[in-house]
Design a protein around this nucleic acid. Sequence first.
DNA 1: ACTCACCTACCTGTAGATCGGTAGGTGAAG
DNA 2: CTTCACCTACCGATCTACAGGTAGGTGAGT
Lengths: 190, 190
Amino acid sequence: MVRARSEERRAEILRAALEVIAERGYRGATLGSVAERVGLTQQGLLYYFPTKEALLVAVLEERDRWDTSGGRDREGWRVDLLESLVEYNAMRPGIVQTFSALLGESVTDGHPARTFFTERYAQVRANMADVLRLEFGDRLPGGLTPEQAAPLLTAVMDGLQYQWLLDPSAVDMPSAFRDFLRLLRGGGDA
Amino acid sequence: MVRARSEERRAEILRAALEVIAERGYRGATLGSVAERVGLTQQGLLYYFPTKEALLVAVLEERDRWDTSGGRDREGWRVDLLESLVEYNAMRPGIVQTFSALLGESVTDGHPARTFFTERYAQVRANMADVLRLEFGDRLPGGLTPEQAAPLLTAVMDGLQYQWLLDPSAVDMPSAFRDFLRLLRGGGDA
DNA sequence: ACTCACCTACCTGTAGATCGGTAGGTGAAG
DNA sequence: CTTCACCTACCGATCTACAGGTAGGTGAGT
């Protein structure tokens, strides 16, 4: 019972951290504000995560677990699923904001999330390429190879997220993404 | 003479600020480190820019002036120029990093650069759409309208920048961008 | 009795900003 | 041509506010 409660607490903390990072980024986030959100003191929080960086790492790992299980069970993928993913994201500005803020910070020198994102993107690109190849073969209808299309797909998703976060009313993220997929699939209409 | 020296100083400071922001982001940047880089104390710096936020605003305004004059003299634009822009960026990781870091931070709550980026992206999209329409009419070869393509173009540029900054060896930014343009221009090869 | 899940108190560092200078030049008045 | 008020371009000291992290508890549950 104690153990369970403890695990529960950790999960609460991670969720709170996600929120706070969304609001202020990692550098701007304070242990105190995360702690407050779950009804702890800053030092109470440090009992669960010994340092601020450890907390960040835990947040990133959780995300990794989440979308390693949720979206991509090895071969259970299609490009269509990306559409759903984007639609799903469009309903969860909080999470999108967290990771967009972290991605932005991560390009600065010595940021603790940097290697995470570097590896993650390499993996995502490779995965995308696999999926595209499985669905279209070595050449997509639009004329690109899977390896050429993969970074573009990733870029479009991220780039649209920023535009959408800055002004949700100005960009219809899911439909813009669909436009891009149509392009990949070889122009045409509808 | 005194005046001239002062303007020069301000320019030096802005350049230094750009560097420091690239290295640590806005939140991570300190007035002291910017000052040090131009041989001033923090207090000396505050003589030129009364607050940290004022310094940031000045940096953003300068960038705005720069690429309002440099790249886009009203109608002197073609899509090809975007290719050159991306190539140019690929040679200046510093500046790209500054603005990628700022963009990431800007989606957090109450960030001083937020309105800047929001307005800037609205303007960039509008501009892109104009240029595309001028070159292709109301429907691009790939099948999209200029208004559909504009946010995608912007997204690809930004998204590629992140991937490239995280691992320059993993993504050939200019050539990936050309791939995308080929897509927009209507598939086909070469 | 012992561990778990915290808390109080505290330390150290740092950041932005204010205050009060001051050296050096500029400009007008005598 | 000198004097005196004044401005420019800074610097040193200091204030306030957190921030992350440590040390050493304490009470509740087992």
